[in-house]
């Protein structure tokens, strides 16, 4: 099974002219990280919820965290301060043609708060706090109710406004792919 996969991969590789994919190592440099090292580094969360840790929280739980750890910069009501942007709406795609949050997945909000906030002490929140304060930020944006429970299964199901207003990413980029909205001469 594994062998067949490799053969297939090798065939695909040859077809795509990519060198040495799915073969043994050529140079033998580097070390194998321990499972623990990988777990510690691997904090990113995907739109389908892959990577979310256990934990839970509601906007009600998050109000206190917000007042204590976020309000100083983002304002007591999330509308921002002299130095820092507000959290309503989320994101700032340009030009602002769409009213409301422009972040397409709730996991994106969770992941950013988890990795980068609070600004001066990133990584200091425990999972329950991240779920709760994410719920609070979404609540400020009228996206969830104050009692909605966010956890590893419900977070990716939150329907963000405008999710379907975005043109999906193109995974199949290959060398030579034509640029979207390019100015190519008519006849070619």
């Amino acid at each position: 099974m594994r062998c067949r996969e490799r053969l297939l991969a090798a065939a695909v590789t040859l077809a795509a002219c990519v060198p040495a994919q799915a073969q043994g190592p050529t140079y033998g440099l580097g070390r194998t990280p321990s499972a623990e090292d990988i777990r510690a580094a691997d904090t990113a969360v995907a739109p389908d919820g892959t990577g979310l840790p256990p934990g839970r929280g509601t906007a009600r739980d998050g109000a206190g965290v917000y007042a204590q750890k976020c309000a100083a910069c983002h304002g007591p009501n999330g509308t921002g301060t002299a130095l820092h942007r507000g959290l309503i709406p989320l994101g700032n795609a340009k030009p602002v043609k769409i009213q409301g949050s422009l972040v397409p997945y709730a996991t994106t909000v969770w992941d950013f708060i988890n990795r980068a906030m609070p600004w001066t002490k990133p990584g200091s929140l425990v999972a329950d706090e991240v779920y709760a304060v994410t719920a609070y930020v979404l609540y400020l944006n009228d996206i969830v109710k104050d009692t909605d429970v966010l956890d590893a299964t419900s977070l990716s199901k939150v329907q963000m406004p405008h999710r379907d207003d975005f043109i999906p990413a193109q995974p199949g980029w290959k060398p030579g792919t034509r640029r979207q909205f390019g100015n190519y001469p008519k006849r070619q």
Binding site: A93, V103, T108, D111
Partner: peptide, 12 residues
């Protein structure tokens, strides 16, 4: 899949 990180989704 793309991870839709903050600086590649809403922000940029």
């Amino acid at each position: 899949q793309p991870y839709m990180a903050w600086h590649e989704s809403g922000n940029n």
